[in-house]
Amino acid sequence: MSLIEANGLCKTYQAGDIAVKAIKEASFNIDAGSFVSFVGPSGSGKSTLLNMIGCLDSPSCGELHVASTDVTSLSQKEAAIFRGENIGFVFQDFNLIPVLSVYENVEYPLIMVQNWAAAKRREQVLELLDAVGMKEQADKLPSQLSGGQKQRVAIARALVTNAKLVLADEPTANLDSATAHRVIDLMKSMREKFDTTFIFSTHDPKIMAEAEVIYTLVDGSIENKEELAS
């Protein structure tokens, strides 16, 4: 069953008098529980596509259904609620809240977004921290962590709301090669453990090879879809 259905998706930006087509007629389906990568050089439209799937941006034309919801016409508030209930994000720069501890960073969506009860919240946060191997670092601040550890915490934060989909925009760009592979491995294992769909973008050939499905973007168009054996 498809978690994401995109049909004729496009995005046009206005740069002064010039209309820049960032995404051109993209159509694709992504199944629930899959491990997908959008690849391509800088400016190929990877981030724009992920932003639209993540309801951070709306398409200029075409249809986009995520978890059976037409996300093209959501208001700012509706989009925020939808993201909070369905989507987790992993950012290139980790984007942990510096004032909060590791535990509190992971707990944050459950407080600010989903309003879980304290006991249930604690159980869920500790389970996720344990799953990403950061339980021992729960009281540390982000500034006390390495890049790889920060991304582990970010993955735990993305999964803590039981998100159906995790979007990771260049999650390994700021990590060294070994750490990058460990982070991708962790994402894979989290996919297995929580049956979550992972979509990540990258321009690193070694990292893109870890995906099961690879969409190659060139100048805003999906040029190729490649399915690899898992």
Partner: peptide
């Protein structure tokens, strides 16, 4: 601003 973007992206509604 970046932090606001993060909390908005993960689903924090504007009123919060």
């Amino acid at each position: 601003i970046n932090e606001i973007g993060t909390i908005a992206a993960i689903g924090t509604i504007p009123s919060r």
